[in-house]
Every structure is written in C-alpha cells, then in structure tokens.
C-alpha cells in the first residue's frame, strides 16, 4: 500500500492508503477529500481534480499531457506543481506523497 496525505489550505489533512495503479483523484473521491470532485471521472474533461503535488515526488511524475495542460490553462491558481490528479497514477515511488488542495 502507498501512503498519501491530502492537505487543505485550512491545514486540515487526510492520511490515506491506496493500491498502486489507481489514480490519485479516485483515491481522493473514495475518501471524500473535499475540493477534489473528479466530476468527469478521469476523462480530463472538467478540471475539478486539480491539486499540487509536493517535491520530491512531483519531479518523479511523467510530464503533463497535452489535454491535461490545456485543462490547467483554464484553472485557477495554477502553479508549477499543479496536476490533474486523475492523470497521476499511484505508484510505490509516490509513497508518502503530500498533495495540497487548491483554494476551493
């Protein structure tokens, strides 16, 4: 199992464990982490799973895809470590990762 911590801007945190292979968005939705809605279910059609991936984990991820990039162009508060979490796969390398939620 891979440990993931979601942190809200308020400081509230959710520590959860996830199976490798699923998306970080689906983990957040399953554990009812707020802000991450995943309205389109991972089709890169809504941008409602935007969040920030902390270092050192962020640099280990494959770069943003074209569609992901375009979707982020329309999002609020985009930072260099912004990702659509539906495009981030849970892998053993992500163990311990901290995902910060954007302002809602």
């Amino acid at each position: 199992m891979v440990k993931i911590t979601f942190k809200a801007q308020s400081g509230a945190a959710w520590e959860v464990e996830a199976e490798p292979g699923v998306s970080v968005m689906s983990v957040a939705v399953k554990h009812r982490v707020p802000v991450i809605l995943g309205a389109c279910g991972g089709s890169q059609a809504c941008g409602t799973c935007h969040a920030y991936v902390a270092e050192p984990w962020c640099s280990t991820l494959p770069p943003r895809g074209d569609v992901e990039q375009e979707m982020l162009d329309f999002a609020f508060d985009v930072q260099p470590n912004s990702r659509l979490t539906c495009q981030v796969r849970v892998t053993p390398e992500l163990d311990g990762v901290v995902i910060t939620l954007p302002p809602s």
Binding site: A39, C40, G41, S43, A45, C46
Partner: peptide
Amino acid sequence: TFSSGPHLCLGH
C-alpha cells in the same frame, strides 16, 4: 445530474 465521463456537461 451533469452525467460523467468524456461528455460531462460542459456548462455544469
């Protein structure tokens, strides 16, 4: 209500 997936309502 807005469906889901690749055709999620654009106007949600």
